[in-house]
Amino acid sequence: MLLGTNFTNAVIDRANFGKADLEGAIFKNTVLSGSTFDEANMKDVDFEDTLIGYIDLQKLCRNTSINEDTRLELGCR
């Protein structure tokens, strides 16, 4: 369980957060290279100034637990 974990300023390369409970986690100013979030709980996660590759972002935006504010922050369409 990673509920509320603060990943601020981290470099996270190819991490598998699949099915993780990340509710309230903070990824502020974090580099998320090749990381996956399949079926993870992403409620109220902060992605302010996070660097995510386009393909990874597309996959992340498919997660239905991400709220509208976070979708705007990420630039999900």
Rank of each mutant, 00 (worst) to 15 (best):
I66G: 02
G75K: 00
E68D: 14
V31P: 00
A20W: 02
E68A: 15
D44N: 14
I55N: 12
V31A: 11
D46Q: 03
N67Q: 11
N16E: 06
N9I: 14
E39Y: 09
D46K: 04
R62H: 15
V45S: 08
E73K: 12
L74S: 12
K43D: 14
A20D: 01
K28E: 11
A10V: 06
S33M: 09
A15Q: 09
N63K: 05
F27K: 02
F47Y: 01
L2V: 10
T70A: 15
L32K: 13
D69K: 12
R71E: 08
D21G: 07
D21P: 07
T70S: 14
E68T: 09
R71N: 00
E48D: 03
T36C: 07
D46I: 01
Q58W: 01
K19M: 15
C76I: 04
D46E: 00
F17W: 04
F27M: 01
G4P: 12
N16T: 14
C76T: 02
N6C: 05
D46C: 03
G53N: 15
N67H: 10
G75A: 00
D69G: 07
V11K: 07
G18F: 00
L22A: 10
K19E: 10
R62A: 04
V31Q: 06
E73Q: 15
S33L: 11
T36N: 04
L3N: 05
L72M: 07
G53W: 15
T30D: 05
T36S: 13
K19C: 02
A25S: 13
D49I: 15
V11C: 12
F47K: 08
N9G: 13
D44Y: 13
F7L: 06
N41F: 01
T30F: 01
N29Y: 02
L74A: 12
R77G: 06
N16W: 09
G75Q: 01
T36K: 08
D21R: 05
C76E: 00
A10E: 08
L2P: 07
A20N: 03
G4H: 15
K59Q: 14
V11Y: 03
E73S: 11
Q58A: 02
E39L: 14
M1T: 08
Q58P: 01
M1I: 15
V45H: 03
N29D: 06
G4R: 13
D13M: 08
G34V: 02
D13A: 04
